[in-house]
């Protein structure tokens, strides 16, 4: 099959602290089983973003300093991102990337930074504390369980129209209060999971792969092709 999935790795050269690049490695691994190539390209500070050129976007986690630096650059791309997301563009946003899609986030030092404002969630800080440790969640719709590692200072609260990626079984999740973890909005998946999420949760990687391929080449029965792929879940 002569098919290539193009991935935009947003700010991948500065938001790269927690192994989130592994999500691309995982997608490439499953795509390769179908003979499909995955290309990734970094779109960073000062780079133009042409959303039509991409089938998927990854925005990973990083440090407060880098997140603050990139915020104004990313906000300039707000309308492009909004259009991509509202048109069902698939995306995985992890930790800082997930925060950045929302209204605002408050850094550990109390400074409030405006986000992209495309999604309604917002993120506040916690004083001298982080949510660190293993986490397990369950998505009530799919009944799938996801495992990962969370390491975040921000506490995120979802807004209208946003569904959580799962309910917390053990760990802290979005904010340590409402048992929610992550977000699903259209084809955007947001999460605090590192590990990274697609390497340890093959079920979710396959779900994303199906979304990407169904959108790219809808005439093909991707479910039948992707479902039987052996998946790593642990």
């Amino acid at each position: 099959m002569n098919l290539t999935i193009q991935i935009a790795h947003l700010y991948g050269n500065i938001m790269n602290t927690y192994g989130d690049y592994g999500n691309i490695v995982a997608l490439r691994y499953y795509a390769k089983m179908l003979g499909i190539v995955v290309n990734d390209k970094i779109v960073s500070l000062g780079d133009p973003l042409v959303a039509d050129e991409y089938d998927f976007m990854l925005f990973g986690g990083g440090q407060d300093f880098e997140e603050k630096v990139l915020a104004p650059d990313f906000r300039q791309k707000a309308s492009i991102m909004q259009e991509y997301i509202e048109n069902g563009g698939p995306m995985l946003a992890v930790c800082g990337g997930y925060q950045m899609l929302g209204q605002y986030f408050v850094m550990s030092n109390g400074e409030k930074i405006s986000g992209l404002g495309v999604l309604p969630h917002y993120t506040v800080n916690q004083a001298n504390s982080r949510f660190i440790g293993n986490i397990t969640i369950k998505n009530s719709q799919t009944q799938e369980t996801y495992h990962g590692f969370e390491n975040h200072q921000g506490r995120t609260f979802l807004g209208a129209g946003e569904q959580p990626l799962g309910e917390v079984i053990s760990g802290h999740g979005n904010n340590g209060e409402d048992q929610s973890e992550g977000v699903i909005y259209q084809n955007v998946f947001g999460t605090y999971f590192h590990g990274p999420i697609l390497t340890r949760n093959g079920n979710l990687a396959k779900r994303l792969l199906k979304i990407i391929l169904n959108r790219k080449l809808p005439e093909k029965d991707w479910d039948t092709l992707v479902d039987p792929l052996p998946a790593e879940n642990f």
């Binding site: 790269n16 192994g19 989130d20 690049y21 660190i132 590692f149 390491n151 590192h194 990274p196 390497t199």
Partner: peptide
């Protein structure tokens, strides 16, 4: 270090 994510980097 209790977080193994770094192996992916």
């Amino acid at each position: 270090g209790i977080d193994t994510s770094w192996i992916w980097d």
